[in-house]
């Protein structure tokens, strides 16, 4: 081995890597012919490689794909939604606003399917109809939900009827009459009222009654 140039090992490595220039390859081959130690080393390494490469090709178990897919996280739709949010933050904000608004609207609208009305003294109820009896005076605003209103006496205040109707009669109403029977109108009415309420908070306690 003493006579062997230092770089023979490197040449051998390059050769075995399949990464050697033709001139180096020639040098290596010449050396291997003359040096039995290096030849032995080279043969041993070649045998080693052949041995490792004799490892048979291994196949994944037949249910591998199915098992792998079963292991994937199930919230891939959520991941998709998150990705979309990241890309379109403004649209996402708008979408969330719309979803919340419509949710609020429809729960309100559907929750109020029952017949109800503002409790005032003197009012009478006939089935689904609220009646202001003849000769009586009701003071204050009146809201009737899912029912009708008939005024035979006098009503001093505004009237709101949701999903019902005002039946014209001989009575007197001093305020405004508003009939609401569609979801959109209900929404508009809710918004208007919430603004009014908000204004009332800022204006002071009595502004609503002064109206």
């Amino acid at each position: 081995m003493n006579a062997c140039p230092e770089n023979v090992i490197h040449l051998m490595d390059d050769y075995l890597d399949g990464d050697i220039s033709p001139s180096d390859e020639k040098k290596l081959k010449e050396h291997l012919e003359s040096c039995s130690d290096c030849r032995k080393q080279y043969q041993a390494l070649s045998k080693t490689i052949a041995f490792v490469q004799s490892a048979s090709h291994i196949q994944a178990p037949s249910d591998f794909v199915q098992k792998t897919m079963a292991r994937l996280p199930k919230e891939r739709q959520r991941a998709g939604v998150q990705r979309w949010f990241r890309r379109h933050p403004m649209l996402a904000a708008a979408a969330i606003f719309c979803i919340l608004m419509s949710a609020a609207l429809f729960t309100n609208f559907n929750d109020d399917q029952q017949f109800s009305f503002t409790k005032q003294p003197n009012l009478m109820v006939e089935g689904q109809t609220v009646v202001v009896p003849e000769g009586q005076t009701v003071v204050g605003d009146l809201t009737v939900r899912n029912g009708d209103l008939r005024v035979e006496g006098e009503l001093q205040g505004n009237v709101t009827i949701v999903n019902g109707q005002y039946m014209a009669s001989s009575g007197v109403i001093t305020g405004e009459i508003e009939e609401i029977d569609k979801a959109f109108e209900w929404l508009w009415h809710s918004i208007k009222n919430s603004f009014k309420d908000a204004a009332a908070i800022f204006d002071g306690d009595d502004s609503q009654t002064a109206e």
Binding site: A55, H57, I58, Q59, A60, P61, F64, V65, T68, M69, L72, R76, Q77, A79, G80
Partner: peptide
């Protein structure tokens, strides 16, 4: 785009090589 079946096809393509690396 959220198509899970497309990923199953990717697994199909690479399963043996990947399993082999892990096994070795």
């Amino acid at each position: 785009k959220g198509d899970q079946n497309a990923f199953a096809e990717i697994v199909e393509l690479y399963q043996h090589q990947l399993y082999q690396i892990c096994y070795r």
